[in-house]
């Protein structure tokens, strides 16, 4: 075992180790750069995540660059350059050299999606091309922000469908799970989830009626603060769990109360006495009073959200 081969192999295992380290993406990126530096001599390097909605790269870790160069790396112009160099698109190059051949750029992708960029400034960067191609997938795994979303999904036992919500109002799939539309109409569920998130909820759950007319538990978790920051939350569908024998009208009444409707309006809307329903709800939830029952139902997601007026 001589030459560069054992070093390269060590590098793969060391990077894989970091890829699973329990720390923030930024801390992982730091550790990746430090480890790579011990094998590949260079004077500047960066790891950045691509923000599709703003079409620019935001840095996770970098060193060795001037303030001016940093501004350029964060600019939409640089993202455009990268596109021109052939790093994005359906058939991207594995690595690309900068125009003056002092830097090498490695696109980081996972599951066919472009995640971000690894850049390195060194003399004769072309001699590292092959090695960087080998380690790029592991670096991509390490900084894949969706890994954090997957971890978040594990808070819900046996999720059956999921969707990621973005700030700009669109949705993204969550790798490993089908989208919400697999369970029935997704639009009302997504609208309710967005309303909860914009009201400042860090977590919330409610019921939805699935395609087969059965109930589904919907769990909404805010993801603010996770880089690159264009995702606002994640919506997960799972088995409804224990419904305490609550009937459809009872679950509907709970939803109307949670939307702030008063008794009279609920009475007129449903053509029934909401008061008597609340009595049976209290009994079923073993709650000491109607307010306790409503809050308890909200905490456990035991209600059908009122349709927006």
């Amino acid at each position: 075992m001589t030459g560069a081969a054992p070093d390269a192999e060590m590098l793969i295992f060391d990077l894989a180790d970091i890829a699973n380290r329990p720390c923030s993406l930024a801390a992982r990126a730091e550790a990746l750069l430090t480890t790579i530096r011990s094998v590949i001599a260079h004077d500047a390097a960066f790891l950045s995540l691509f923000e599709p909605e703003r079409c620019l790269h935001s840095p996770l870790a970098r060193y060795g660059y001037s303030a001016q160069r940093k501004r350029h790396l964060d600019s939409p112009a640089f993202a455009d350059d990268i596109t021109t160099l052939g790093l994005l698109g359906p058939a991207p190059a594995a690595t690309v050299l900068s125009v003056d051949a002092s830097e090498i750029y490695v696109p980081l992708r996972a599951g066919g999606d472009y995640l971000g960029l690894f850049g390195l400034r060194t003399t004769a960067p072309e001699r590292w091309q092959e090695q960087l191609t080998v380690v790029a997938p592991i670096i991509a795994r390490a900084i894949d922000p969706r890994q954090k979303l997957t971890a978040m999904a594990s808070l819900v036992a046996d999720p059956i469908a999921a969707t990621v919500l973005t700030r700009a109002g669109s949705t993204e799939p969550l790798p490993g799970l089908p989208g919400l539309e697999a369970c029935g109409p997704a639009a009302p569920v997504v609208a309710e989830a967005r309303a909860l998130l914009s009201a400042g909820a860090s977590h919330a759950s409610f019921l939805a009626v699935g395609a087969s007319a059965g109930y589904l538990k919907v769990t909404v978790l805010a993801t603010a603060g996770l880089p690159p920051g264009h995702r606002s939350g994640i919506v997960l569908m799972s088995d409804p769990g224990h419904l305490h024998g609550l009937t459809r009208p009872e679950l509907t009444v709970l939803g109307l109360h949670l939307a702030g409707w008063d008794d009279r309006r609920i009475h007129e809307h449903l053509d029934l006495t909401a008061g008597s329903l609340l009595e049976s709800i209290c009994r079923k939830l073993a709650a000491p009073g109607r307010d306790a029952a409503i809050v308890q139902a909200a905490a456990h997601g035991l209600y059908l959200p009122a349709a927006p007026a």
Partner: peptide
């Protein structure tokens, strides 16, 4: 086996990342 190492390392980190 050496050429296998990157592939195995990658798959193991995927397994570790799955829930």
């Amino acid at each position: 086996r050496e050429s296998l190492a990157p592939e195995l390392a990658l798959e193991l980190s995927d397994l570790a990342a799955a829930t």
